[in-house]
Structure formats: structure tokens, C-alpha cells
């Protein structure tokens, strides 16, 4: 449910650190709460993101949720495939359902995020 190699944000985004780049998506818990994802509104490559601020929106049939960036930096890649197949977020939230890659401006922000164990405890509260 919550891979151990990832770190998690309280708004239910996960981060996979690859060097100075953070790959960001939403957790299994988040996709399950949303239900069938029908649309993901993502920013563009080159845009700046700030930790704890929104970078996009995700929609199910009858809900809209904001997506929060766990880190600050510049977007270096966006998962454009989600515009045609948003359901990938449900099917593979930690793999093909990733959303953006951010070149981090402050790698220490990662330290503030939760481990898989802490996150699991957090969502079970």
C-alpha cells in the first residue's frame, strides 16, 4: 500500500527522490478516497512549485481536490499521459500514475515528510 522507498506529505502526495529531482504522485489512500479519477490538471514544465502549496487539481466524477507539492523547485517533467488516461492514477499510483518531476531547490524539505510507516499510521487515525 505504501512503498517504503517513498516519503509522504500530509496532503497525501508521495515523493520519490532521484538525485536532486523529486518525482511526485498521490498515495494509494488518496486515490482510493477519490474514487475513479477522471481528470488531472497539471502545470507545465518550467513552472515553479513551492512546498505545501498547490500545483494542480485532480477530479473524480463528483469531487475536486487540490494537489500539494511536498517540495519547492522547478518542474522538469510532467506526466502528459494522464490527460488521456487519468485512470492510471487509480491503477498504478506509484508507477505510471506519477504526476510531476521537480528539480528541488531545497533538498532538506524532504526531511519534513513522513516515512511509509508514519504515513500509514497517519491515514489510519
Amino acid at each position: 500500500m505504501y512503498p517504503g522507498d517513498l516519503v509522504y506529505h500530509k496532503e497525501h502526495e508521495w515523493v520519490r527522490v532521484e538525485g536532486d529531482v523529486a518525482v511526485i504522485g498521490i498515495s494509494h489512500f488518496a486515490q482510493d478516497q477519490l474514487g475513479e479519477v477522471v481528470y488531472v490538471d497539471l502545470p507545465s514544465t518550467g513552472d515553479a512549485v513551492t512546498a505545501d502549496e498547490t500545483f494542480g487539481e485532480i477530479e473524480s466524477v463528483k469531487s475536486v481536490s487540490e494537489l500539494y507539492s511536498p517540495v519547492s523547485g522547478e518542474i522538469v517533467e510532467v506526466n502528459d499521459a494522464l490527460s488521456d488516461t487519468p485512470e492510471t492514477v487509480n491503477a498504478d499510483p506509484y508507477g505510471d500514475g506519477w504526476m510531476i518531476k521537480v528539480k528541488m531547490s531545497d533538498a532538506s524539505e524532504i526531511d519534513a515528510l513522513m516515512s511509509a510507516g508514519d504515513y500509514e499510521a497517519f491515514v489510519n487515525e
Binding site: 477522471v38 481528470y39 477530479e59 473524480s60 466524477v61 487519468p86 485512470e87
Partner: peptide, 12 residues
Amino acid sequence: PVRRLDEARAAR
């Protein structure tokens, strides 16, 4: 006249 709809398909 119809049963439950595939609303996700309608939106996607």
C-alpha cells in the same frame, strides 16, 4: 429505463 451509468466514462 436505464440502469446505473458509467459516469467516469462520461467525464473522461
